[in-house]
Each structure stands twice: as C-alpha cells, then as structure tokens.
Write a protein that binds this DNA or RNA. Structure first.
Length: 307
DNA sequence: AGCCAGGCAAGTG
DNA sequence: CACTTGCATGGC
C-alpha cells in the first residue's frame, strides 16, 4: 500500500471526516472497528474507514475489473491514507476537499438552526460519491433508517461485490450494475431489501444495458435533472434529489425527507406548500439557492443526532 | 403493540 | 393533476 496525508486543517472550513462519512450521505465506507454509521460516538473521530473503488474511477466509470482499496483516518489535522494507488485526487473528489466552506456559507443565511448545525459539525462536507452506489443506496433508503441502509449496502457488497485481497485482508467492492441486474429479486429480499428489491434490480438493469445512465441526467438544469432521474425505478422526487446532491454535484438540491419536512414545519412554516416541487423550491430559496443542499445536509445531520 | 424510518409505484377519480 | 393504498423490516 502507498501512504500519504492531506493537511485538512489548512483547508477553508477544515474537515470533519466522521460527520461527513456517517451523516447518511454515503454508504460505501466501512469502519475498521465494525461500527455502523449511526453513532455520534467520540471514538469515531480517529477511526479508520475503508472503501473500494473501481480502478478507472478517477477516469469516472464504475465497474472496471480493477479495484483500488482506500483507507483513511483523520488525526492531528491530517487526513491520513493508505491505498493501493495515489489516493490524494480520489479523496479530493469524493470528499469535495476543494469546496471553500466559509465561502459557501456566505451564500447561506445564518438563522438560528443553521448557525447551531454549522457550529456542531464544523468541517462536515457534502460528498461526491460515484453515481451507481449512490443510486442504489438511496433506492434502498425508502422508509429505512441510516444504519440499516448502511447494513444493506454492506450485504450487497459481500454478496455481489468483487473481492479484493490486500495485505492479507479481503475487501468487497460495491457490485457492478451487471451483477445487481443479474441478481434475483428473492435473493435481494433475503438481504433485507424488502419491497425495494425489484426497484434495485430493475434500475441496475437500466444502467447495465445503457437504457438510462448518469449521462442522461448530468448537465441538465437542476429541475429537469430531477425529472430525468425518475426514469430509474424506485426513484421519486426525494431519492432523485439525494443522488443529484451526493453524486452529481447539484449543490442546490434540497431532498425533502421526513426530518426536513419536520424542520420546515417547526422552523420554516412559511415554506410549506402543497407539492414537493413547490416546497422544495421555497426551502431552496430560504437556504440561499446555489448551495442550499449544503445547508440541508447540516440540518439533517444536526436534527437526527442532536434532536 | 404500535409507530416510525432520508418514499415509491400503481390505481382511481 | 391530486389523492389513496399497499408495500418489508427491524428497533424503540
């Protein structure tokens, strides 16, 4: 393994690795200590996390036969890594380390809730995940808790993901679209996916055959992109917003889940409308537009962990 | 025991 | 278009 480190204390706004990886944006990292993404425990502050990427991922396609293992931990102002390749550019991409957080929050209002959330999780960054794992994760997310979504992705990787052996340990990549398209619905149900099983299988098939891919969405204006995402099965407005925000770089996307809807009722009642599109548009404006998804991500994590 | 969790698809009016 | 219903599953 190669090793390296990134001086994240010097980045504008810093980095909170644990909050970034465990706030329900990404489900493709695991902790060495085996703990699930749920706890707000202080020990996670220096835990090792690992993931497996397709080998040509920095060139952007998921599903290569080659894979790279990347391990990271945050300690003493550094993001330390061990990996089978140079992980610097991958981490900058995945964790959006080039985002200037103070500049982003210049564009976001400083209401009491947002101020508290920012203060609680300084350095939390919106992730930029690979498209397919993000799509599958959020199809699975319907009516599920964060820890269980994470568990489902772990099960999918164990069952259908390519094995990668490094330094005597076995890692599992996230399954390719082809492998999930070939899975049976009943097998997926055995892994706990419930009624989401046929959605995952069918959407994987759409990607595998090329009928619908990220390329059909990326580049569209935000609201058109949200509509286009719904060509996938198991993707409505909310899941579409999550994939746009966490994989396709639409930082203005504001997913309206049950937590955010509660936040609207409690803190932004003037944003209540009678449709997803209208409420989303109002809250997007309330959160300053361009980076509204950043504000949403802080509020979601804050409400879910600090009540 | 009931309620809830980062909702969605299909059917009806 | 809006509204209703059915759908898995585990934790509190």
């Amino acid at each position: 393994m190669e090793t390296g480190s990134i001086p994240v204390a010097d980045l504008p706004g810093g980095l909170d690795l644990q909050a970034t990886l465990e706030s329900g944006q990404t489900f493709r990292w695991r902790r060495d200590d085996g703990r699930a993404y749920e706890s707000d425990d202080p020990t996670g502050g220096s835990a090792w996390y690992y993931t497996v990427a397709g080998g040509v991922e920095s060139g952007r396609e998921w599903g290569s036969d080659d894979h790279e293992v990347v391990r990271v931990r945050q300690r003493d102002g550094l993001l330390e890594w061990e990996a089978t390749t140079d992980a610097d550019p991958l981490l900058v991409e995945w964790l959006r380390l080039d985002d200037d957080l103070p500049a982003i929050f210049e564009a976001v209002p400083d209401d009491p809730l947002l101020a508290d959330a920012r203060e609680a999780y300084r350095g939390l960054r919106v992730v930029n995940d690979p498209f397919f794992p993000c799509l599958v994760s959020f199809i699975c997310s319907a009516q599920m808790r964060v820890a269980r979504i994470h568990g489902m992705q772990t099960a999918l990787a164990r069952e259908f993901g390519e094995q990668v052996a490094v330094d005597g340990r076995t890692y599992h990549a996230f399954p390719t679209p082809e492998r999930l398209a070939a899975a049976t619905e009943s097998k997926l149900r055995e892994l706990g996916l419930g009624y989401r099983a046929p959605y995952v299988r069918r959407s994987a098939e759409l990607v595998a055959t090329g009928e619908v891919t990220a390329a059909d969405v990326a580049g569209l204006d935000y609201e058109a992109a949200r509509e286009a995402m719904q060509a996938f099965v198991g993707v409505g407005d909310k899941v579409a917003d999550c994939v746009l925000l966490f994989a396709l770089g639409y930082l203005e996307a504001v997913p309206l889940d049950t937590w955010i809807r509660t936040a609207v009722a409690d803190h932004y009642p003037h944003c209540e409308r009678d449709s997803y599109a209208e409420t989303s548009r109002a809250l997007r404006a309330e959160f300053g537009g361009e980076f509204a998804g950043y504000a949403q991500t802080y509020v979601f994590h804050y409400l879910r962990t600090r009540g």
